[in-house]
Lab assay of single mutants.
Amino acid sequence: GSLMYASIFGNVSAIIQRLYSGTARYHTQMLRVREFIRFHQIPNPLRQRLEEYFQHAWSYTNGIDMNAVLKGFPECLQADICLHLNRSLLQHCKPFRGATKGCLRALAMKFKTTHAPPGDTLVHAGDLLTALYFISRGSIEILRGDVVVAILGKNDIFGEPLNLYARPGKSNGDVRALTYCDLHKIHRDDLLEVLDMYPEFSDHFWSSLEITFNLRDTNMIPGSPGSTELEGGFSRQRKRKLSFRRRTDKDTEQPGEVSALGPGRAGAGPSSRGRPGGPWGESPSSGPSSPESSEDEGPGRSSSPLRLVPFSSPRPPGEPPGGEPLMEDCEKSSDTCNPLSGAFSGVSNIFSFWGDSRGRQYQELPRCPAPTPSLLNIPLSSPGRRPRGDVESRLDALQRQLNRLETRLSADMATVLQLLQRQMTLVPPAYSAVTTPGPGPTSTSPLLPVSPLPTLTLDSLSQVSQFMACEELPPGAPELPQEGPTRRLSLPGQLGALTSQPLHRHGSDPGS
């Protein structure tokens, strides 16, 4: 009898404990919600809404976190579960008819179910419309201010047509639940991603989709105040780019002037030289400038040598048109050559190039014969006009050509200096018209024969001689050997007369 009593008592207590286990969990969670309300000092109306929603959600799901349970299964099984949970929507909604099984599984994985109690606001006026909503159960109302403009029910759709707008718009009203509602919502990016994977279904979906109420604000059109608020930074940046392009296009129409201050000032006329910023005076940081632009901040801005204009002085008759350009485009679109090309026009420029290279940067340069637009006047290309890779490749080509020119210049200078040193070592320090008596009659020769300089066969020296023939050397430049009979510069000019005159010897006659 005691054994029977113990078994009955144990079973009854276990049954009672299981009955009250759900209630215990409910009270535990309710205590957490109330502690949250007390800690954050939530006001009474919002506090009442929180408690009511918790009670309804507990009775609806029995305190089970559906998302946590669903995430515990593998992905393939999750797709089947989501397809079952959203079967009513996918079967009865017209846009989803005719979709393949794979497309429906992908869509079912992207849908999220939302449960809303009465009085809950789903979308506020001015919120971004980031999702498309399908009503599965219940009814909602749409308000503009305090005026109800629409009441939607089961199988209705609200949001915005995503295929017509590249960016999400703003809501033009509040969406509030009238009863307990079940909503299926899919985010904008998720829907577009699935439709991109199934393009054959995309056309059918957009053609058959009928949005019951379009929440997009109709005033959000390009150029409206609301649109400016939504895309303020983007609009200002776009206007700045367009104004920069218009100014650079105007600059290219004036090829007669070359400016070292950047493309923003290349198009300024002579009357605007004294102004601080020219056409860019209202925004000094709008356009890029070269490193020399920092010198323009000092006094005497109108007389600054940074602004270059072609000189009108005539060229000498024998002067060549100019050196070879550094870039391939210089032959086609440049009416002034790079300062480095002028360094190779003569030997005198070679000796004085490194010492006063900055001073020569603004000297007169030889002109190319074609009066085409200036290379320095070409505006900086924006990322939309020329690819970045093209600019980098041009810079690399320019750097390689500069290296080759520097190597060639160093070799030419070394060769010229070597020839000058050899000339100085071969010439005796001094010569006299009267020579010392020699031991015999073989001493009648006034000077030792001097062998002429070897013929220069280097390509670089031939180019130097060509430049010497075309360029007029300055007075202080050293002379180079030329073709024809060679003669030492330090010898007297009348050596031929010395050989014809008898030598005057000093000596005593033994017979006297």
Rank of each mutant, 00 (worst) to 15 (best):
R167Y: 08
G269S: 12
T425W: 14
R246M: 11
P222D: 10
P502I: 11
E200R: 04
V450E: 10
T499L: 05
P288R: 10
G159D: 01
P437I: 11
I135L: 06
Q401M: 14
G256Q: 06
M327W: 03
D412T: 01
L132N: 03
L398Q: 02
I186M: 03
Q421D: 11
G438M: 09
G138Y: 03
S208V: 10
N377D: 01
P474I: 06
Y165V: 07
S508Q: 06
R385M: 15
Q401Y: 09
L191C: 03
G346N: 07
Y180A: 09
G223V: 10
P475D: 15
S272V: 11
S462P: 08
V434S: 11
L340K: 05
R144V: 06
S345H: 08
S290Y: 04
S348N: 04
R422I: 05
M220R: 12
P428V: 06
L326K: 15
G138C: 03
S341T: 12
S348E: 10
G138R: 01
T248Y: 10
L365A: 11
P428L: 09
S207C: 12
S374R: 09
S224D: 13
S345T: 13
R385K: 11
P288V: 10
N403W: 12
P371W: 07
K250P: 12
R247Q: 12
P284M: 15
G440I: 05
R394V: 11
E193F: 10
P485V: 04
A397W: 04
L308Q: 12
P161N: 08
P510A: 06
T252F: 13
D156R: 03
P199W: 03
N338Q: 12
V149C: 06
P317C: 15
E297T: 05
P225F: 11
L340H: 12
H184G: 06
S302P: 06
T436C: 13
F201W: 13
F351P: 11
R505D: 08
G322S: 07
L191I: 07
T499D: 14
P291I: 13
D335G: 09
S381F: 09
R273K: 08
S289E: 14
S286Y: 15
D356W: 13
D335R: 08
P371E: 08
T248E: 10
D249S: 11
L503V: 10
A370D: 09
G359E: 09
P270I: 12
L498D: 09
L398T: 03
T457A: 09
N349W: 01
R167T: 14
T444I: 13
G126L: 03
A430D: 07
A177H: 01
C181L: 05
R246I: 12
T442V: 10
G496I: 12
T372G: 09
P428K: 08
E253R: 10
E479M: 13
S235M: 12
S382R: 06
Q361L: 08
D189A: 08
S352Q: 11
G232R: 09
L405Q: 04
S445Y: 08
A411R: 11
T436H: 06
G226Y: 12
Q363G: 10
A131F: 13
S303P: 08
V149N: 01
T415F: 04
Y362C: 10
R404W: 05
P161Y: 14
Y165H: 12
Q482T: 10
T252D: 07
T218E: 07
V149H: 04
G153T: 09
S290L: 15
V391L: 04
T455Y: 05
R358E: 08
P316E: 13
P383F: 10
P474R: 07
V427W: 14
L426K: 11
S259N: 15
E295K: 05
G359L: 07
L402Q: 04
I211D: 02
K170P: 05
D509V: 13
F311P: 15
S227M: 10
S357L: 09
P222E: 09
S208Y: 07
Y180N: 08
G138S: 01
E479L: 15
G226D: 10
Q401W: 05
V434H: 15
L398N: 01
